[in-house]
Nucleic acid binder design. Structure first.
Lengths: 225, 225
DNA sequence: AGGGGTATAGGGGTTTCCCCGATATTCAGT
DNA sequence: ACTGAATATCGGGGAAACCCCTATACCCCT
């Protein structure tokens, strides 16, 4: 079944992170057909992604941007800080330079559009394996450079919140209850409540529906889900 | 390479429509591994999809909702009018009943979430081949029914709710607590809670943040307030 | 060394959530 | 006119969430 003609090197390990199972299945099918590559895990949310990276130590994480719980950019930031050896290939629908700049700023080494051709996926992966960076061909690197040098990473209005607070806010707005959030983050319910209270103070919003509306305004969550 | 053990019947023809090349490539890889199925074409926009249907006469069109130019629902409506023999399987990220109802109303025979398991894809396709309809398991058919039987073509759904329920929903989404709502309407807190529970059943949404997101989707409240 | 910001957590009282059942009204169908 | 479904109104009760307080540990910064 497997081609794998020149099997001397051990396969590169890939972790697949995307919140759509069917898309993961599709990507997995594609990657399984590429020699020298092994998908060592997959998951659909950011927290699990971090746990899987710790366990599996993949060479490359193929990371979607929009994820429940903890978005892809936050995952990237965390990984690039705590697992600098793991290389990150962002998979996104957005070609806007501000998105790309934010991803690179968060520590990604590659940026690929979901509308990319299949060959670009292979190209991107091999670039990352070889230690090079990769930008999707459809993206203008110079424009991105300007965004990066302009220190434009602060696009979101939710910058007033700490990463933890933003994460809690996102989970609340997604409809997760304190119990679920606490167990997902391995902290006590009380801690979750404390974070909620603190971010409420930050925002001056003192009810849950208001938090949800705010999260939608700043793009932390998407009402269409 | 191909399995295709019992090759008596000619393979079912599938047309793939999605605006993301990589996703198409992935789906193609998945479908190519299923016996008795042949992908006879793919494209990334609605107009080309119509042209391809005319040329290839597929059995089933696997149709993403968000497409450039002409969205998936418009494509579905056109196909079901001009090519009623071609069956339509919608592939969507949205699980909200109002989305499902709109898709079915546009003439789709199947509705699948991008977060569905791989097995559901096979199940859905075979259902359509056999002339049956298919709804993703994660979707509550009864709730969708209510949306369908209500004046469905009116985009601003929420018509499924009684005026009272709509009023309560709006107040909740504005951040008013049950007590405030009750006193404002001169009813007991228990009544307000009952209304909330009833409208939750209607919508198939069982948490407050989800209600808020729904209210925003249908324009009942405005996130910018 | 101290101070501010952050993340963690418990105590305890209030409120909401969400299950159960109950009653009255209205409106449609036979 | 009667039946039945849908709607609107309430209550009990327990689990959960909310929201006030305090408290620790850590890190960064001056």
């Amino acid at each position: 079944m497997q081609k794998h003609q020149y099997s001397s090197e051990k396969p590169r390990q890939i972790l697949l992170v995307d919140d759509h199972r069917l898309l993961r299945a599709g990507m997995r099918a594609l990657l399984d057909d590429m020699p020298g590559i092994a998908v060592v895990g997959e998951c659909g949310d950011g927290l699990e992604a971090l746990a899987l990276v710790r366990r599996k130590r993949p060479d490359v994480v193929l990371l979607d941007v929009s994820l429940p719980g903890m978005n892809g950019l936050e995952v990237a930031a965390h990984l690039s800080q705590h697992h600098p050896d793991v290389r990150i290939l962002i998979l996104s629908m957005h070609s806007g330079p501000e998105y790309v700049a934010r991803a690179l700023n968060a520590g990604a080494q590659g940026y690929l559009l979901k509308d990319s051709a299949f060959d670009e996926l292979a190209e991107a992966l091999h670039a990352l394996f070889a230690g090079r960076d990769y930008l999707c061909a459809a993206i203008d690197g110079e424009v991105v450079e300007r965004f990066l040098s302009a220190g434009t990473d602060s696009i979101s209005a939710a910058e007033v919140l700490t990463p933890r607070q933003r994460q809690i806010l996102q989970l609340i707005a997604e409809g997760r209850g304190p119990r679920e959030i606490a167990s997902g983050l391995n902290v006590s319910v009380k801690t979750v409540e404390a974070h909620r209270a603190q971010l409420m103070d930050r925002l001056g919003i003192y009810n849950v529906p208001g938090l949800v509306r705010f999260a939608i305004r700043v793009g932390l969550v998407n009402p269409e889900t």
